[in-house]
Write a protein that binds this DNA or RNA. Structure first.
Lengths: 217, 217, 217, 217
DNA sequence: GATGAATGAGCCTTCATTCAT
DNA sequence: GATGAATGAAGGCTCATTCAT
């Protein structure tokens, strides 16, 4: 099964690839493997097999397992950051559109895939005792948090609300994270649309004049 | 430090302990070890050392590492369930008091300790690819979810609100889980009081006539 | 061959041995393995197999290969030191007897065995780039060198000779080491008696009134 | 430091070099690497890096690591042989001058360098269990040994001495080897001049009418 | 019950060797 | 000639599990 899958993914399987292409291929393979096997049971052989390559190659490109995992996390973190910054840059500049863009970004089908969510879960589980992981987890993205708080504060002013913006921002963030986790860990996970709708149900509770469960009014 | 702590916990280390007492001692040691080392790096030797016991004893009482971990999770899950059921039984039977009790239960200092939160994190990270773990994670506690939804639905009726109660319940649940995670994974975690206040800020957004950030009005 | 040898060496092969006994057994096995395979090709599996034990046990007792090798060298160095100090303590206290004892000690059949000589060679070859090894090699035994020089200086006085005692001592030491090496590295090595006779031929050259090729006059 | 050194040695690194020149470059690099890393830890990557060349080139020129090492040893052995034969050819033909030339040849600054001594040590350490290495080590150079013995025998006759010439030759040879080793393995090695003086102190002990510690009388 | 020595499967890592470019 | 990606065998090390005492 794994065999046929590899063949399917990398049909002619170029014998030699540029350094960067190979590295990215291995990182994607790591994400898949983390999703399927979990953090504790992920081995380099798994990663290599899943990519249809020899395990020696992993060390050739990443030196150690630790570095492979770290670079995979950095890759995910950068991809995540790029996703919401791009989404916000594309949205109208007013507060409510910016906030909507920020919240919806997390449910972009490009990054909100089963594999990526699972991989994030794997890293989160280990983050508590690995400072390097902890730094890369969303809750520690200072720019993201500051921006979200600022948007909530501005929206408070516009709408005359007075809930502590720091806490509102926190609720919105952990709700987003939480429905992500749900999609992974629930026996009967709901779909992405329902997840997004849950987040906007929350946003609408704080800002009923601005949001409905589907987004901006 | 760890050394002295063990000695402190198990002073002369009674040569013989009842079967149940030993098992619980080892489970508590497992929780501590998971918190400190993370899931992937927890070894039976760690657990035994932390309990001040011999290596072989763990296998004597639990047969395999897998069973030790499973029983630890069941122990935590049961403790958690007992915590909120007890809290609710002790609260007034009306909807708002019941809901307050349910939400506050999660921040009971007895179960909301650094070690326990970390241990939960460790299990969550692995849950996605281990059905047995997944079943025990809070989001799959059917009774808890059903009760929470029911309380939200009732409160909706009482207050004339009409947000989808399933989603409100979900927001409250993931917010609770989320601030738990925050306490573990943030570089500068906030304290338990602030966590609880965050949850009630969320509850107050849905039910402004019932809750404030400190609990019931 | 290896198989039968083990059986021969450790006939009933006690399943459990005291910590110290097992460690010494493994150190002896390391010496044999170094002698047969050389430093670069000695593996933990070789050592374990030669002792008829599992390779995991080596790590259990010595943690790392490096520590096993270091402890083996320390063991040889201590054995060597004990050999010449004991020999000198047993000899008459006058200068010529002491010097004879010192020189003959190196050819004591108990330590001048093929395995031990080979093991020493293996360590010498690596000593140049491993400070810890270098410290343990004979040429750095300050007490030995100081004593040998002192004896040469005293003998110079007694016999009215005037060759630089530091150099005489050095010649005697490297000659001893050299014939040791010869016994190992020559295609047609001469026997221990001839080696010792060579050393005393050298001693007799410096002190013709005191030594003959067979020892004291 | 190593970095800059390579660059310094192979400045723009001529893309094409004669077969022989490349081979010699790699052999010199092997000698340096053996000196710095020791036998057991010398890798082809080290050798290539030190020469500022690519990994694959080593195999292109030498096929296997074994062949590279063997050829390096042969190169050193030939260089060594050429050194003493040349020195003797340049010296006066009488016995004492020939012997002086032979002994002094070992301390010719051209071959008595730190790198070369260390490389010899590395090979010696492995020689005991590798016949091919053993054959090339100095103590097995039949021509050298025969000549040295013959010179000793002749000098015995000339001077009326009667020490066994085979043993005298052996003492002189191992003393030379020994001070070589000392220069490598001692924590506080003495200098080349002192080493040579030590050898002639030994020669003077056997032939006091012919030699002083500085050479011929 | 309790201990800790012993085992061996499995993992990460190194590295000689091959080979497409 | 030369490069460096790719392979895979082999070694060190970890650790769950077993078991004699």
């Amino acid at each position: 099964m794994t065999e046929s899958k590899q063949k399917a993914e990398a049909p002619p399987a170029p014998r030699k690839l540029s350094r960067e292409a190979r590295r990215q291929q291995l990182i994607e393979s790591t994400i898949e493997t983390l999703a399927v096997r979990g953090f504790a049971r992920t081995t380099l052989t798994d990663v290599a097999k899943h990519a249809g390559l020899s395990h020696g190659l992993v060390n050739f490109h990443f030196e150690t397992k630790d570095k492979l995992l770290t670079e995979t996390l950095l890759y995910l973190a950068e991809e995540y950051r790029l996703n919401w910054t791009t989404a916000m840059a594309a949205a109208k500049p007013d507060v409510s559109h910016q906030l909507e863009a920020m919240l919806k970004a997390d449910f972009n089908p490009a990054i909100c895939t089963a594999s990526r969510l699972s991989a994030w879960c794997a890293f989160w589980g280990e983050a508590q005792c690995r400072p390097m992981y902890q730094d890369q987890c969303g809750s520690n993205d200072a720019a993201y948090n500051a921006l979200l708080e600022s948007l909530c504060a501005q929206l408070n002013e516009e709408t005359g609300r007075c809930a502590n913006p720091e806490r509102v921002a926190r609720v919105l963030r952990v709700t987003t994270e939480g429905v992500w986790l749900d999609m992974m860990t629930m026996n009967t996970p709901y779909i992405r649309e329902e997840a997004q709708r849950t987040v906007f149900t929350c946003a609408a509770a704080f800002y009923p004049d601005t949001f409905t469960e589907d987004g901006l009014k």
